[in-house]
Amino acid sequence: MPASPSAKPRAALAAQLLQQSEQEAAVTPMDAVIEFARAGKFTNDHCFRLLARLWTLKRMLYYVYGGWAQGINLNDYPPGVAYLFGKQTYDESTQEMQYCDEILRRRLVPTQRALFAHPYGQFAIATRTGAYIFCLRALANYPHHIRIAALNLGAKVIELSWTERFAKLLPDESLCAVFHSQLAETRSHILMGRHQVEQYIHKDIDIELAKRLCVETKRDYLFFLEETARFVLGMAAEKAGEVTVQADID
């Protein structure tokens, strides 16, 4: 193989990562939450659990994105890369605030401080949420265009898919609005991921790393969704080996 892939293999890599992620996004554990809600069984408590768990993930992303940003050094990339990542960081922050605002608007807790103290809003290390956050934080060890490939063409594609279904199918209008408002941002992150893969993946090793890290990141994200859906629906946590996610690398 050539040392520096031409534009064509880079575009092919982006298309391949996207296609694989879209296939994995077709069915996720979050479908069970939608079905439950559409059956009219969604109570205030279910809603609180859902919003609080999604909020917890988003608020932990400050630690991920902060670590990633520190790993982009002067002239590593053209300025556009920094602009786009700044935008993505702010978008995630906006979504974090949206979840918090919706919880407050529904008076599920009286204050933001109370949300931090509520059991539903806790970040626990020994959880799939923790594992996914740690997985993303570990991507700080890799060049920015590779971690963007792993997240924005992997877990983000799955996130967009279930968010679209929530925006379209949830019976509660204000919940639909929350998820609908996030679609443009998440779509832009995926487009940014494709752009960066096409522009900045220059080595064969980068192609392989992007593939491997994308697989692992998606796996941990799908386990996060599994844990979230079970938490929302009041189901027991997964038992060892009960849930498997395809993650063949070699």
């Binding site: 630690y63 740690f134 997985c135 570990a138 392989e208 491997r212 690398i249």
Partner: peptide, 25 residues
Amino acid sequence: LMDDPRANTQPKLSYFGMTAMFPHI
């Protein structure tokens, strides 16, 4: 070795990422 993905990817990212989160824990 820097061109070999097997020498640059760990079995579980979450273990290493957990280490990186300790400044915040």
